[in-house]
Design a binder for these strands. Structure first.
Lengths: 146, 146
DNA sequence: ACTAATATTTTGATTATCAAAGTAATTAGT
DNA sequence: ACTAATTACTTTGATAATCAAAATATTAGT
């Protein structure tokens, strides 16, 4: 690997770790101290509008149904999410966010918005496209190897 | 956020998740099935050459000494890492990799190399510099908010 | 009415994590 | 030289995250 490639690898790894760390510390400073990052990502996957089913959310998060079930138990207990049994097919559970869950969702969205804005600041439209192309490359590599 | 910004955010999140997923599935296909991703990152932080101390590795991974101690117990039990008590100062533990640990380390490095190469393929030197600049922006944002 | 299949939950086991208490070794203060 | 304070690490107790497999409940197929 070229020195530049090595540098980019190191920066990717550093950025990767620092994102989690910052997300974690932002939570602890907020009114949502009782949530872990994983729980926030679960809230994100439940989403605002569509009443996704348990299986759909589990798939989106790439965890087993059992894992999701446990974490939904916790989110319900903490007042962020709710279960709604479908009337069409009573095996199916639709997941939704409570008012508090939706608040959390919006806070996390805004964090992401800020992050991406800083990522792209000083870059013109053409340069942004290039970054997007690199991300597409990486996504292609990841899909190919799955 | 611009539609392009939104798209890049979504791609970042997707890539982010897919990297962990792919790393995890690569492990399960390899001879190192008994390791989790976290354990692999711990092996990485122990490193090949420098005999880092427990505190140094814990700091690099951003975990408490207690957490590291537990995970080193597991890595020692599984034959990937070893503890070496310093003769200078017998409170200090230097961590090292066993032969098996070094093998694992090299496998993981090569995975990263491949990933970065695909990330940067089709980009000329100037374009790569631009990607690096975007990463620096992001790193700056992350440092600033810590 | 059985039997299959599907959606989810529960259970038991392991890892990851922290804070706080514990142990052992070194350093500092007098 | 003794005692106290500091440092480096480990252990413990608690909780979250995770999976595979077993259990439960509902629906679909014949």
């Amino acid at each position: 690997m070229t020195p530049q490639g090595q540098r980019i690898n190191d920066k990717l790894v550093a950025v990767y770790n620092d994102i989690i760390r910052l997300e974690e510390s932002e939570i602890k400073k907020s009114e949502f101290k009782d949530l872990s990052i994983k729980e926030i990502h679960t809230i994100n996957a439940i989403g605002m509008y569509h009443r996704n089913t348990s299986s759909e959310v589990a798939q989106a998060l790439n965890v087993t149904p059992g894992t999701l079930s446990v974490s939904i138990n916790n989110l319900v207990r903490k007042g962020y999410a709710e279960r709604l049994r479908s009337d069409d097919d009573r095996r199916i559970i639709h997941l939704g966010l409570t008012r508090k869950g939706r608040l959390m969702y919006r806070m996390h969205q805004s964090f992401h918005r800020q992050m991406v804005q800083s990522f792209l600041k000083d870059l013109n439209a053409q340069e942004v496209s290039l970054v997007e192309k690199a991300l597409d490359n990486l996504q292609y590599f990841l899909d190919e190897h799955s």
